[in-house]
Amino acid sequence: MPLRRRWIAGAVAVILLAAVVTLTAVVFPSVAATTCPGCYGLERLGPGLYAEPGLPASQRRRVTEVARQAGERVRAFFAGRRSSPDLLVCLTEDCYRGIGGGRERGVAVLNRSVMLSPRGVDVVIASHEMTHVELHARLDGAEVPQWFDEGLAVLVSDDPRYLAPAGEDRCLAEPRRDLPVTLDDWLRAASADARVYAEAACQVSRWAAANGGEPAVRGLVERLASGQDFPAAVATGPVRD
């Protein structure tokens, strides 16, 4: 290729790349923010932990402690961690809107990073979102029904809004016959009635209790990652580590 054509091709490639980056930042700011937290003004508090700048020492300690405890909660359930998502934490609504957040307390972005709003800077919300990331890291591309994904996150995070205290039956709401399977269906159901989280948590917690607890869940995830489909993996029965 002549030099001039190579130069033109290179220039076009740079322009297209810049356009893609700009479009991502405008249309999907949460994706861009998790890719480059500093570009959105977030300050690094530690490895993989970012928060809005200028926080007083007490709030910095709070954010750091929430991240630590949430990570330990996930680690304890899964007997280790295979994921290490970046956490982007906002203590003001302006900050959260600036990184692409909405009305949610927290959100897992592309199953790689976690964003927490001012209403979600606590161990329950942080560990819920981190569970989504950990689960998908272990699934290695395998899929699960959305109700299982959400119900497991409620179970791991030990969310008292949707689970009774530890005991024989932790259910606060009987699961409907057909819990939402797809993300779109889940979002519609959850926006209409948040009790669907309790229903999903009931389904997951009862299965876990009947099949060996946390080791059974880990075994189920391993079977899914190895290629077994969800109905067959769930029907396998009790599994021990």
Rank of each mutant, 00 (worst) to 15 (best):
Q69G: 00
P145E: 00
E93F: 07
R75S: 14
P85R: 03
R103T: 12
L16D: 04
L116C: 03
L45D: 06
F78E: 01
V133T: 13
Y50C: 01
A70M: 01
R44N: 11
E222W: 11
E214A: 15
A208C: 09
R75V: 03
A70C: 06
V66M: 04
L17M: 12
D229M: 04
R112H: 11
A216N: 05
G213C: 05
V20R: 10
A173N: 04
A51Y: 02
R61V: 09
I8D: 04
P2N: 10
V107K: 08
T131D: 06
R188I: 12
V109E: 02
R103F: 14
L220D: 05
V181K: 05
R60T: 11
D140H: 15
T182Q: 11
E52W: 03
P37F: 02
V121G: 02
G10W: 08
P2L: 00
V234I: 14
A200P: 02
D178F: 11
S191M: 13
E199A: 03
D229N: 10
D178H: 13
A126P: 05
A189I: 07
V63M: 04
P53W: 00
L23M: 15
A137W: 07
R138V: 10
Y197W: 08
V234T: 03
Q203G: 02
P238Q: 00
C36W: 15
A13T: 12
L139C: 12
Y197I: 02
F230G: 03
P238M: 00
S58A: 14
E65P: 07
E168M: 10
R61F: 06
D185T: 11
R62T: 07
F78H: 08
D184I: 09
V63L: 04
R103L: 06
L42G: 07
R81V: 09
R44K: 15
R170K: 10
G102S: 08
A210L: 12
I8P: 12
Q59K: 12
D159L: 06
A142Q: 04
C39M: 08
V74L: 10
E143S: 15
M130T: 04
L139F: 11
R218C: 09
P175M: 01
A200D: 01
D140G: 15
D178V: 10
V26K: 14
R105S: 09
E52I: 06
L42E: 06
Y40R: 08
E150Q: 08
V74G: 06
G102E: 01
G212C: 10
A13W: 14
G100S: 07
T92D: 09
C171I: 00
L152A: 06
A166R: 14
W7D: 06
V204T: 02
P85N: 03
P53T: 02
T182C: 11
Y40C: 09
P2Y: 00
V217S: 06
A142I: 10
R176N: 00
G167Q: 09
R75Q: 10
C171S: 08
G46C: 05
T24L: 15
G212T: 05
T34C: 13
A225L: 13
P215G: 04
S191A: 15
L45I: 13
E143N: 13
E52Y: 03
